[in-house]
Nucleic acid binder design. Structure first.
Lengths: 208, 208
DNA sequence: TGGTCTCTCCACCTTTTGGCTGATACCGGT
DNA sequence: ACCGGTATCAGCCAAAAGGTGGAGAGACCA
């Protein structure tokens, strides 16, 4: 059996060390690089061409995880990427899957689950933590309530307290478009105001 | 120099592994136990009597970190406890310090910072990550930013997504009064819109 | 090819919110 | 008795948000 090369991307030193220590116990898995930001991840991926990238979505500064996934997959469409993050936010799950993530693990996953995800990823299998799977499942059962990737993106920014104008600037779209998206989001979430949307989003998604 | 015994408490396996790997590189620090919940932490502390307890505040199920700190310190008032967590929430910082934490580190802290905190803790020194320190400092310097009971009540309802009219009805006050309170709340929170106030409130206070 | 989804944009209009100024009343401490 | 903080209310005005209806471009799929 071939050794599976893995690139770790996380801005927390301890998390990288932990993953390295855990993965190091497996003979068939080798950590070939580490990165603490999206930018570094791209560089490291070009340099080491890892079979699997294990990536945290929440990176302190600079490019966020989703963007990094998109660029990684753009550069190498076969690149297997597993999201390894703390929260099972609906918006993040949708965006990550959309960006091309092969798996979605929570940081409290058992070591075996992580190993299985890495091994599965190289074979093209998707592995996700149980809470994540159940959320996705729920969403598939209620297609009306699924936010489109763009809507999810908007909602996520909404929870930061931005105005319509700011949302437009941030996403490079007009205020009119922002209002259109918001109207759709309100309808899907079953609320009438942005305040309620924010409250719902944060409570329902574990965003912060 | 004596070896410093450390107990790790975190529900994330990878974080424990990472800390263990990092601390293991230091000759004067030895991890003597691990726990993944508040309950386990108490047991382990009784068994191993560690010099320092490194504790995550957010534990999936059961007793939370704050409660665990209180009980640890109740059992052994000299027990040094360092909080090691992901978020610098105002509410958590205050509660942790109040419960008797000696230090407060964020998970993205540099390894050196962690070592320094552990060594400092056994000497009775408090060490905290820079963002944490600055938040505490701000709170101490600005007692103006404390919300009055009525304002806090309003803010709490605000995070449920109510309109000014609804807030008035719920609190049996006029809409004018609601607006007055809101203006004061915005000023104290340093925001301009209700959306930002909701976002700040939920993130600051760990409301969900 | 036609239908559906998504993302984008526009105009018009109503409602809500926020900024500003000012006012009354109660309570507690100096 | 005075002052500071809190809670209550009012009116005015500008800005922001929300509702309605419509529309074009590109992707994807049957």
């Amino acid at each position: 059996m071939n050794t599976i090369s893995v690139l770790l991307v996380d801005d927390h030193t301890v998390v990288r060390s932990g993953l390295k220590a855990l993965l190091g116990t497996q003979g068939d898995i080798a950590v070939v690089g580490e990165a603490s930001s999206g930018e570094e991840a791209l560089e490291a991926a070009h340099e080491h061409t890892p079979a699997v990238v294990l990536m945290d979505l929440a990176m302190g500064a600079g490019m966020d995880g989703i963007e990094a996934i998109k660029l990684l997959r753009q550069w190498n469409p076969k690149q297997a990427v597993i999201v390894f993050t703390t929260y099972d936010s609906d918006a993040d799950i949708v965006r990550a899957v959309d960006a091309g993530a092969m798996g979605y693990l929570l940081k409290d996953a058992a070591p075996e689950e992580i190993f299985a995800a890495v091994r599965g990823a190289v074979q093209g299998k998707s592995v996700m933590s149980a809470p994540v799977a159940s959320r996705l499942f729920q969403q598939l059962r209620n297609p009306d309530e699924i936010l489109t990737p763009r809507e999810a993106e908007l909602l996520s920014l909404l929870t930061e307290g931005l105005s319509n104008r700011d949302l437009g600037k941030r996403l490079f779209i007009s205020e009119a478009t922002v209002k259109t998206h918001l109207a759709h989001i309100y309808a899907k979430l079953g609320v009438e105001t942005r305040a309620a949307a924010i409250a719902t989003a944060i409570r329902r998604e574990g965003m912060r």
